Simulated scan of single mutants.
Amino acid sequence: MDLASPLLWGQFISIGLMALALGLDALSLGLGIGMRGIRKLDIAKISSITALFHILMPLAGMWTGSYISALLGKVATICGGVLLLLLGAHMVYSSLRAEESPTYNHRSFWGLMLFSLSVSIDSFSVGVSLGMFAGDVLMTVLMFGMAGGLMSVVGLALGRRVGEWVGEYGEALGGVILFAFGIRFLL
């Protein structure tokens, strides 16, 4: 495919926006952990594992989505759009609920796994949707991984310097972006 192709650039921009939207969870939870105090080595470990989860979860979702698409055909496209709508609405609702999130030891193996899974689980659902649309797998997982890891670093590093307000609005913004893509896929 030609690198100057409008289709390639459109897909690159769409996937990039979704990756940033999903990375906002890592940013907001990273802010919370960072505000409690964190070492640079822990930032590197958490961000690396988060990036890995942001690669594996959408990859598993895309495989699942492509299987569903092969079974359902055109109905799968509608299901993918509805899934993005629901996921976006849930993210906005969760952020507005302003419920206190449970704390855990991010230095332990299980704490690290829990953090990484909690911020990348949405990537699986989006991966299912993208698998139904037959998106570019390599570009998707690499962009999701880079965005998840980078947003995690930013959140953890800035956590000591900013207030809690960013975390609340970050998840809501991510939800609005996914909701908008759901509408776009349904139209």
Rank of each mutant, 00 (worst) to 15 (best):
L3W: 14
H54S: 15
N105Q: 05
T64S: 12
G65L: 07
S120M: 01
V137G: 01
L7F: 12
S101N: 14
G16T: 06
L186V: 04
A172D: 08
F12P: 01
G81F: 06
K45I: 06
L84T: 07
L83Y: 01
M1Y: 14
L138F: 13
V119F: 01
L86F: 10
A98W: 09
I68M: 08
M151W: 09
S28T: 10
V154I: 15
G127V: 04
T140V: 04
L112V: 07
S48Y: 09
A157T: 03
K74W: 13
R107Y: 08
W110G: 13
R160N: 10
L3F: 15
E100M: 07
S116K: 05
S129Y: 05
M146S: 15
L27W: 05
M62G: 08
I55A: 09
A172E: 03
R107T: 13
F133R: 10
G32Q: 10
W110Q: 12
H54R: 03
T77V: 14
C79I: 15
L112C: 09
G61S: 03
E99Y: 12
G170L: 05
E99D: 14
L3M: 10
Y67S: 11
K74D: 12
F144L: 01
G34I: 04
A70K: 05
A21W: 01
I121Q: 00
I13C: 08
T64P: 10
A134G: 09
G163T: 08
L20Y: 04
A172L: 04
L114F: 12
A44C: 02
G16D: 05
L138E: 13
Y104H: 09
L8Y: 09
D25W: 13
V141I: 15
Y67T: 12
A98T: 08
F185C: 02
S14H: 12
V119S: 02
A134M: 14
V75P: 00
N105V: 00
S108D: 01
M91F: 11
F115Q: 03
Y104I: 10
G174R: 07
Q11K: 13
W63D: 06
L72C: 07
S129V: 04
L117M: 11
P6Y: 11
A44S: 06
P102M: 12
I13A: 13
G149A: 01
S94Y: 00
I55Y: 01
V137F: 11
L72G: 01
L114A: 13
L41Q: 12
Y93M: 15
G148H: 03
A44H: 02
W165Q: 14
N105H: 08
H54E: 14
L112W: 07
I121F: 09
